[in-house]
Amino acid sequence: MKITIVDGAPGHGFDPFHGKLVQITSALALGGHDVKNFRLSRMHLRPCTGCWGCWARTPGECVIPDETIQIRQAAIVSDRLIFASPLIMGFTSALLKKVQDKMIPLLLPYIELVNHECHHRKRYPAYPELGLLYQAEHDTGEEDLKIVREIYLRYALNFRTEFLFMETLDKESEELAYVVISH
């Protein structure tokens, strides 16, 4: 299975988080899976400016050069795309959201109706299934987790794929590696 992991934890104070993802990556690789782990805090990343260049000028390609192109290239040929982030102010990180914003070139600008709602049409024949590995805040409650889950379900709907799981990083690496491939 091809798996892309996007580590959205900020650079400072999250060494255990990064370390856990490295362990999960290793466990998956040992199991014979083709895994890429992108640590966003070490990458050159420029946010989406809403220019629509990726739809209107260079169809399917972001016109703002940065290293997120590697993530889009890896994600679109993956079976699973795993977002990973601590919850900060009740949602996954700004760093991760900036990358998610820049996935828009993977869709077409044209609109179609899905479940009676407007959504962008697919550019690619298939999209990776999604999962989320998160680290809760000290005050994270059930309502917070429900809000996060629902937004990721919408994200999956937009990309015509499935949101398979949302799992806390508190578990053992081997167990989480199993979660990533088992759903």
């Binding site: 900060i88 949602f91 996935m103």
Partner: peptide
């Protein structure tokens, strides 16, 4: 803000984090 991929744009999330 405009809706970006079903949520706030990344720069808005950054702002929320700055308010923490």
């Amino acid at each position: 803000f405009p809706l970006y991929t079903d949520a706030m744009p990344g720069i808005v999330k950054e702002f929320f984090e700055d308010l923490s």
